[in-house]
Every structure is written in C-alpha cells, then in structure tokens.
Design a protein around this nucleic acid. Structure first.
Lengths: 250, 250
DNA sequence: ACCATAGTATGGTCTGACCATATTCCCTCA
DNA sequence: TGAGGGAATATGGTCAGACCATACTATGGT
C-alpha cells in the first residue's frame, strides 16, 4: 500500500507559532497589537518559557514581532510587519553560503527595478520623493552623501510602484548588494555617468514612459555591475548596453 | 553636536549568529558542513545552551541550518540552503497580517513568472521537465492531480530561467497563493482554458519567443486571478486580455 | 555471522533562578 | 500643594541543570 505519512513530530515552539498565527488569522490580530508576556503565554499554552522564547525568535526573524524590555505600555512583544528586514538577512546568509551567485541577485534586482520603474511611470504616482532624492544627489559633495541619496532614489522608485512586496524585495536586494555597490562607485571613479542615468530614469518616469524607464534602469544597472546581468534579448545592440532594450520583458 | 549612536545592546544569541556567519564567510563553511553540538557550541562561545538554541531557531527559520536528533553522522546541526521555505513562511505571515494584499502578491508573481518565461525562452534551456509536466497535466483526471502537475509546470518555468533566487521567490509566492489557486480552479469550473494557456506558454518558450511567452503568462494569470493584477499598459487592447501585451516590461 | 541489548551523544523540553531595564507608585521634602 | 526621588514591579535576557525521546554505536552472547 502507499500513502504513508512520515511521522511528524511537532516541536513545542512550532505549536506556539501556529497558535499565534491562528490568532492573527481568526481574531484579526494585526500590526500594533500586543502579545501577552512570555511567562503568561507559557502558562496559557502549557509550555515552558523557553519554548515561547524560541517561537518569539522565529517570529522576530520573520519580521512579525518586536520585543521591548522594561515595563509599561511599550514593553512586551508587539506585532509588526517588516518583511524587508527578514528578506535582507535571508539573502545575506544565502549569498554567504555561495548558494546564490551575485549574478542571480543582480538579475533579480534588475527585474524588480525595471518592473517598479515601468509601473511608476504608468501609474503617474506621487513622484515628489523621487525628485527630491535626485536633487539632493545632485547637490551632494561626498561619496557617502551620494550613496545615501542614491539609496533614497531607488527606494522611491520601488515605492512609486505601489507594491509593498516588490518594494521589500528591492530594499533587501539592494541591502545585500551594498558592499558591491560601494566597490562599483569606487571603480567608476566619478558619479557623472550614474547621475546621467538617474536623470534619464527620472525623466522617463515623470513622462509616463514605461518603456523608456525600464531601458534606463537596465542601462544604469549594467553600468554599475558590468558583465553581471544577462537580460534576455533576441537581437544585440551596441556593445555598451547603453540603450539595451529587452526583447519584451524585464 | 550630532552623530550620537543609539545604545545597541547585543543579545547573546545575536552574537552566536554573527560568529556562525563569520565562520561561513571566513572559513568557507558551506552547505553540507556540520556545526558543533549545542552543548559544545555553548561552551566554546561562553554562552548558555539556551542562547545557542535561540540562534539555531533563527538560522533554521532563515533556511540555513537543519537539526536532527539522535546520534551518528546525520545527527546535529547541518548547514543547508533552502531560501524558498523561509520565504514562504515570511509571505504567509505578512499576508495574514494584512500588511500585504493579494493584489500585491499576484502582481509580484506575474512579474517573476513573466521574467522567468522570457528568460527560459531566450536561453533555450532544458525544457524536458516543462514538457513532461504539460503532458501529465493533459492526462490528469482529477483536480488534485491537475493542481499537482500544474505546480510542477510553473516550477519548471522558474527553474528554466536559471536563477535560483527568482525560482525561490516563485515557489514561495505560489505557495502563498495556493488556497486562492484552488478557489480559482473551482470558480472556472473546468481546466480547458487553463490548459490552453499552458500550451501557449509552452509553445512560446520552446520556440524561443520571449515576448510571446510573457504575454501568454500574463493572460494565464489574468484568467486565474481576474481583476487582481494591474499590468502597466499604455494602450488598451481586447477586453479579454488574451493577448495583453505589456507596454514594455512585465 | 548474527542479533539483541546496553551505552551514549544528540536535540527537545522544562524548571527555577537571577539580571538589566524601564515604568509606575508612593513617600518625602520643600 | 507640588516636585523630586527612591522603592516596587513587570518585562525580556540569560543562565544552570536536569530529564526525556531518539537514534546511532559498541558489546556480548548465541
């Protein structure tokens, strides 16, 4: 006969997580709500405080709860929703394990950033943050300042797409690539080319030109990570990839 | 004056994680290698076993370690790399917290699946898994069987893109949408339309037609999740979205 | 040679204690 | 009456030590 199920031993902390998750689904527990204290939770769930704590570590790792010590309204465990933090940790570790290559991460970022830019252009979203970051980048005098506003610029693109999930992915991908980004800036020597890319991206988004925005994003990332990305193209263009246009999809 | 740093209290288990991560980076620890036992690790790091265990829970949540009880070569903590599992948990919880909407998840899946299909088409990758899944879907007689091979089909598309990160994202997104996918199949009543989509996707990828593959994927997801996705388009086409072509990027 | 049994190392769980922190309460003093 | 300051208290963070179930390993008897 078939259909054997492997014996699944449920660890105590997994049960704690499941029950908390059920409360979120059934009781409408949401961001900002507080969980009982660890001791109280342990007593109610008939497990030890250790098991409750291991469950809290898991939920904290997933960006779902945050714990504060002390006493008062702010103390204890509080439901939050910070998927980007969790994603950053995840990517950083798996990148370190060499189970993800830099090319894969860069490709994924190119995908998301092109998508975000195209959506931002098509949706005529609020672009004030985008414009502000661009102006501050223009006015920046140090490399640190430039990188700071550069990050704000790319985050603004992601947020203008109106999708919090892809925004979180973008944030964490960029976070994982931070060390390589610094190297890229140093390798290029100056930021004139990057700024030209930024202005081109900005112009296209403001003009509602989704295709142009995506192309500008691709050119920008190809400049920052030369030779890394492998966009699918059916016809080759100039060797610099400057106006590299995707076959159809980014 | 400025430049104040917030007092950062480092919890013991965070230090354990940091040291393990450093060993991964410096000592070239990689997938398949084993970590010392919890007691031994606690002694070496001068922390309690509880702290070591909390660190292990975090790393396990991130899909980086796996623990087996017992004794022998298989026992103890082992380095793995399963980002998709971690991503699934992350998405499921944040979806439950209503901090991510179904539309955002569906949009993200559309983005990734279009990208994957286009890459798969452009790269002429090994498509035997794709073809096999399609044939099994054609031959399936029950809804359960259909869904099973449908999953295999979409996973094969992701894997054919050659990017493990986007594949992991696809897997977890699809996992999060499983319950809605079942509802969609029931709503449609039959699978003829879905199968037509699948064959169209398959034909395009095999033919190396990246644009056609992406368009077919979009049509497929629009059929499964009507009214959810909002692809950026500058010109409208037929009302059925059948040959919906993105303005430029998916 | 084989098999049953004892030994042992592992993760999983629990208990109970103590510490650092931060709020709340209340008493003292001006 | 108000303000200041310390005590009480509740929180998470950490630790030590014990016990359990599990699963391999070694041993010894057949």
């Amino acid at each position: 006969m078939s259909g054997w199920q492997p014996v699944r031993r449920t660890r105590a902390f997994e049960d704690v997580i499941a029950q908390i998750e059920r409360r979120i689904a059934d009781d409408g527990l949401t961001v900002g709500d507080r969980l009982p204290g660890e001791r109280q939770l342990a007593e109610q769930l008939r497990v030890s405080r250790s098991s409750v704590r291991e469950a809290m570590r898991v939920l904290e790792t997933l960006g779902v709860v945050s714990s504060q010590v002390g006493r008062g309204a702010d103390a204890g465990a509080c439901l939050i929703s910070r998927p980007a933090d969790a994603l950053s940790d995840l990517l950083r570790l798996h990148l370190g394990l060499s189970n993800l290559s830099l090319a894969e991460v860069v490709d994924a970022r190119l995908m998301i950033e092109q998508w975000s830019a195209a959506h931002a252009a098509a949706q005529r979203a609020d672009l004030s943050a985008l414009t502000a970051a661009l102006e501050r980048m223009d006015a920046s005098t140090s490399a640190e300042e430039f990188v700071e506003h550069d990050t704000a610029f790319h985050v603004a693109i992601a947020e203008a797409s109106g999708n919090r999930l892809t925004t979180a992915m973008m944030l964490s991908l960029r976070d994982s690539l931070r060390r390589y980004a610094v190297g890229a800036v140093e390798r290029l020597g100056d930021t004139a080319g990057l700024m030209a890319d930024h202005h081109r991206i900005h112009r296209a988004i403001v003009a509602g030109d989704a295709a142009g925005a995506a192309a500008a994003v691709e050119a920008h990332l190809l400049r920052a990570y030369p030779g890394i990305s492998r966009p699918p193209r059916t016809e080759e263009e100039g060797p610099d990839g400057q106006h590299g246009r995707l076959d159809r999809v980014g």
